[in-house]
Design a protein around this nucleic acid. Sequence first.
DNA 1: GCCGAGAGTGAATATCCTTTCGTTAGCGAA
DNA 2: TTCGCTAACGAAAGGATATTCACTCTCGGC
Lengths: 325, 325
Amino acid sequence: MPLTPYTRPADGQVRLLTKVARMYHERGVRQADIAAALNISQAKVSRLLKRAETVGIVRTIVTVAPGVYAELEERLEDRYGLAEAVVVDVDPEADERELLASLGAGAAAYLEATLSGGDRIGVSSWSQTILAMVDRMRPFTVRGATEVVQLLGGIGAPEAQSHSNRILGELARTLGADPVYVQAPGVVADPAIRDSLLSDPSMQEVTRHWNELTMAIMGIGSIEPSDVLATSGNAFADDERRSLIDQGAVGDICHRIFRADGSLVRGALDDRIIAITVENLLRIPRRVGIAGGDRKLEAIHGALAGDWVTTLVTDLRSAEALAER
Amino acid sequence: MPLTPYTRPADGQVRLLTKVARMYHERGVRQADIAAALNISQAKVSRLLKRAETVGIVRTIVTVAPGVYAELEERLEDRYGLAEAVVVDVDPEADERELLASLGAGAAAYLEATLSGGDRIGVSSWSQTILAMVDRMRPFTVRGATEVVQLLGGIGAPEAQSHSNRILGELARTLGADPVYVQAPGVVADPAIRDSLLSDPSMQEVTRHWNELTMAIMGIGSIEPSDVLATSGNAFADDERRSLIDQGAVGDICHRIFRADGSLVRGALDDRIIAITVENLLRIPRRVGIAGGDRKLEAIHGALAGDWVTTLVTDLRSAEALAER
DNA sequence: GCCGAGAGTGAATATCCTTTCGTTAGCGAA
DNA sequence: TTCGCTAACGAAAGGATATTCACTCTCGGC
């Protein structure tokens, strides 16, 4: 089930619903005043608001208590040399959806709290988790960042692409930042194609942005491709994956593959990938990784061991398992 | 200003906050019941919930669908003190035809959402834009208004006249309202003619209606006469127009001419015009102006600056330009 | 063409929530 | 101990919101 039904009732009502919802929830206008301003009855405003909620235009989410697990967070920080760990309270019985929702909410809260304004942020916009986060951010009243840049190629199967672009666009909007898109696929068939793409002026521009990032927000992938990746046409072929696993690969960040100890798996794949380079990636001061769930445990561990991230947002169960090691 | 301070109440309070927030927002339990369950007072539950919100445990977000320009509308409203702004999504490359179609559709949707029944509506039926709107309205399920009145003289060249009358008649029909026609030209050659016309009983009747309008729907004209006007015989003569421009005129509403700062251009023309008076016009509580396109930008700005309208329906590009100023 | 089900409406009202108010408890300084 | 001072509390008042109600109009079936 998709996290957000992005198509909704469609009728011209949507505009009105949005307008009323924003007045009420963001500006705090009372229903009676909204009614007066829009020349409708208060009862109607109430009904519109209810409708906006059921339709999904308005969502209220309860972020699971940031900081409840201060002690656990500290252990993680010490154990892996993290700048910060954020542990999110998720019912261990929860399904994937709920896990994503909680991680997203936690990450959103973390970002809202720590973004100050001047950041230039790179985003691995292929991630379900990142999507969940973006969906849970409130618009910033002040500029939250100056620019938001895709960290890897965003073009794939059409519907997955818009996914990726939507993530970036929406993030840019909520942060009041300029979006920078990567107009290229994530993985191409041949190194030569990659090189020609990279030499394109628009990609040169992107590369320049990649050099100047102050922060990165990234999902952490386990080596079996996630759903999005699988359907996007950007996943690696089966035999490639087997070969990677043979080399000890457990996970990836921005399509850069690493082992359980965090070491980079170099291979033929590297030069078919259009993404920020490993060097540039590791040069970014704040690298926030967001991931959780048993499936990703190995990958997260690798990411921590190899210093791929400086900040981790994860769920309670994973955090405990990671702290144990 | 960051939205949420990441520092938190630290202690077990957070647990309680989350628990209460969950019960309330996710399970929909009433505050009184929560209070009973947790052995605290209902007032305390209310306070806890408020706290949870300010601390960031509870966040409610309003997602804005693409093609809806809530922020921009709000900016326009603030900037010009409008009761409501409606920004219509039009491809900036679109031609005049498409622009009109979109504006019309937007205005129609706005009216359908906001008209409740008791309104007495004045219409400047000379406008192409209004025509586009009327063509796009669906018949009302309930009576949308009690009467619809022309705001200015409707008689000119025969085919333009029927234009004007058709607009009014059709609008009256879709709204289930009584039409009130102005059986006179919009501009006459001599003040004396105007006076004699105005003293006619049927015009007296119309004037009475003009006094009691609750709403006006008007096109905004740029100072160069639009096509309809030009061919209608109602346009002002060339030298008159030049003289107006010399006085700083940029646009008109119901043949009342204003400058870029919104101030009324008084002149000999005034008493040759058969239309609602400026005083009566400005006394109408809701004055909806519909216009868009580069050509009209100055005129729209004047209309906003001079408070000629309380509600504006315009296109994306114009809205952005207007919000900038 | 008549009927009944259904959707939608605003006014009035019932319900629910927030805030005020007077009180108490905790804490530090005198 | 006494005296502020602050924070927190519940009861109740006062506001804000959800819902009921009576009504209108549509639409589909007969």
